[in-house]
């Protein structure tokens, strides 16, 4: 893709500790606001087809709503069973109020 950055949310609409979601092409993206910083990961758990944006976020760790797999949002690292495949993390930049992510 020539244009890699995609708008997925508005910064002003993100709330601390909550998770927004967006679809870009065939990808689903979860957007997090943690300690004032915006992060983005793939939204689909690597264990089963579940949206992480329906999960539980605490201390920078997202827990999948289906089977409690846990990932560190900043790094995408899988934190043990049932997940052992890391989740993709996407680069984020802010342009005005727009939250842009870079896929792939």
């Amino acid at each position: 893709m020539a244009e890699d950055w995609h708008k997925v949310a508005r910064r002003s609409e993100l709330a601390e500790g909550e998770i927004a979601s967006a679809t870009v092409g065939d990808k689903q993206v979860a957007i997090y606001l943690i300690d004032g910083e915006v992060h983005a990961t793939d939204n689909i758990c690597t264990h089963a087809f579940a949206c992480l944006s329906d999960g539980y976020l605490e201390n920078g760790i997202i827990e999948c709503p289906l089977h409690a797999g846990r990932f560190e949002v900043k790094t995408g690292k899988a934190l043990g069973a049932p997940v052992n495949v890391d989740i993709a993390v996407y680069a984020v930049k802010l342009v005005g109020d727009d939250v842009l992510v870079k896929l792939g």
Partner: peptide, 8 residues
């Protein structure tokens, strides 16, 4: 269908 509540 409310896994978010499970941890709390």
């Amino acid at each position: 269908n409310q896994g978010r509540d499970m941890r709390p």
